[in-house]
Each structure stands twice: as structure tokens, then as C-alpha cells.
Amino acid sequence: MMAKIYLDPERCIGCRACELACEREHGHPRISVGTVSDLAAVPLYCHQCDVAPCVAICYTGSLRQDGDMVKFDSDLCTLCGLCLVACPFGAIELDSKIQRCDLCGSGTPVCVMTCPAEALVLEDLDTVTRSTRGRAAGLLAARLR
């Protein structure tokens, strides 16, 4: 299973470091932080859907499923903008080109590295689930003590 970016919404402090880091790296931020009810901040970015509507709509093969990731090849892109219409999360933007998270190519994405609160992690789903469960169990044990 490939590692993706996961969010722990309980940790996000809404500082927008991820936006600034992404903008520095890619010239345009592909992650955007918004605040719900003026309380909880949530960064939003491409989920690398397993069954991706953007891939289904892309007629040039510019967006394609690669394992459980979505890959993008800008050479094939016609800038038609239909993937923006298809994406359920609003995670694709169009300026002079398609702006969408590519996990910074290889290694750890800058948003994950920069997040002061460790709200963003690069993990595979099993590890995330395991560590979330482990943390919840540990917390419960600590509270019971």
C-alpha cells in the first residue's frame, strides 16, 4: 500500500505553514486551510482517490490511476478544466496549469515536513489506522489512571 497524506483534524492549529511551504515549493499552493465555525481549522488537498472521478473524466490520460495514487502528466493536459468539475473535494485548481498535489514527487511532501503540529502525516492507511487506534487506547488508559 502506498503512503498518502493523512490529516488528524484534532491537531491542526490553522497556522497555514503547509500553504506557505507548498507555495514556495510549487509556485502555487495546492493545499488550503479553512476554518469551520471559526474554530476547527482543516487543510484541504488531493486525497489521491482510489477510484478517482478526475481520472474517469480525463480523456487524454493526463490524469491516470497509478497503483492507489493519481498521477498527472502536464504534457498531455489540454487545460479543459473538466477535472475541476469532477473532483468531489475541490482539490484541483487551474491557473496557467493544473494545480494538484503530487506528493512533491518523491520523499516526504513539504507540507508534512513543515507542519508544526504534526497534523499532516505521510503514511499508508493501515499505519494511520493503527496509530490512531493506539493513541486513542493509550489516552483512554491514561485518563482511567
Binding site: 497556522c15 505553514a17 500553504e19 506557505l20 511551504a21 513543515t114
Partner: peptide, 11 residues
Amino acid sequence: NEGSLCPKGNA
């Protein structure tokens, strides 16, 4: 900081 930086640090 273990590699992390706030928005100002990033800028």
C-alpha cells in the same frame, strides 16, 4: 522544531 517551521519561518 524537528524540521517543522511555521508560516513565517517558511517565508
